[in-house]
Design a protein around this nucleic acid. Structure first.
Length: 211
DNA sequence: CACCAGGCAAGTA
DNA sequence: TACTTGCATGGT
């Protein structure tokens, strides 16, 4: 299975190229994006991030102090804006008050400790927590999302249904623990799904056909 | 008009 | 454990 997963990765990489998700963005911006993109198209999130940047709000202390109504108005385009305002405030508050307002210090903590702390924040679930760990803090953890689950089913990689933890364990026990690999693999699965398996239960004709 | 998008929490059975 | 519902905008 390990070799099969690596073969699939090579094909996806050759087909779609490096996705470099969130390259050159600041960790804070990635954290904000991870919350805003919950069940929302990235297109809508980009507008919200641009609004925050234009308002000079993409800084920890600004986000910490900005009034809820102001924040909600800036992120309106990302949907669920009242909910996400609270969620952003929740995680910013933790970073600010428990981690010395330093994402560098935050990142210096061990992966398991961080994951537990993130999951304890209202509004941060498994996918958001893992996205933050991998994409913002460079921790080697595999992100599972709706596309990844569809991918496992469509390509008969996993027997029956699997929980988030089981899907994650599947990838992490069959792949070397590597930030670059986990980063690109997840992004490539999304690229595959969005190109070939969109709104279709089975991916009949895609670059992985015959594997 | 309906349906979906890089979820989550709270409630119910 | 396994559904169901509310949250909301913008694109197809």
């Amino acid at each position: 299975m390990r070799q099969r997963l690596l073969n699939i990765f090579d094909i996806l990489l050759k087909t779609f190229g490096e996705r470099h998700w969130w390259p050159g963005e600041t960790p804070l911006e990635i954290i904000v994006g991870a919350v805003l993109t919950q069940n929302t198209s990235w297109k809508n999130v980009e507008k919200a991030i641009a609004n925050l940047r234009d308002g000079g709000l993409l800084e920890l202390d600004r986000l910490y102090r900005v009034p809820d109504e102001t924040l909600a108005e800036k992120i309106r385009s990302s949907g669920y804006y009242n909910l996400k305002t609270v969620r952003l405030k929740n995680i910013i508050k933790v970073i600010y008050e428990e981690f010395n307002a330093s994402i560098e210090y935050l990142a210096s903590n061990c992966q398991n400790t961080l994951r537990e702390r993130l999951l304890a924040i209202k509004g941060i679930g498994e996918e958001t927590a893992d996205s933050i760990l991998l994409y913002a803090l460079d921790k080697p953890i595999f992100v599972i999302d709706a596309y990844t689950r569809r991918f496992l089913v469509n390509h008969d990689l996993y027997e029956g249904r699997c929980s988030y933890a089981q899907a994650q364990e599947f990838f992490m026990s069959n792949l070397p623990s590597d930030v670059y690999l986990f980063n690109e693999y997840h992004a490539l699965i999304v690229a595959l799904a969005q190109t070939y398996c969109f709104k279709v239960p089975k991916c009949w004709d895609c670059p992985l056909k015959g594997l």
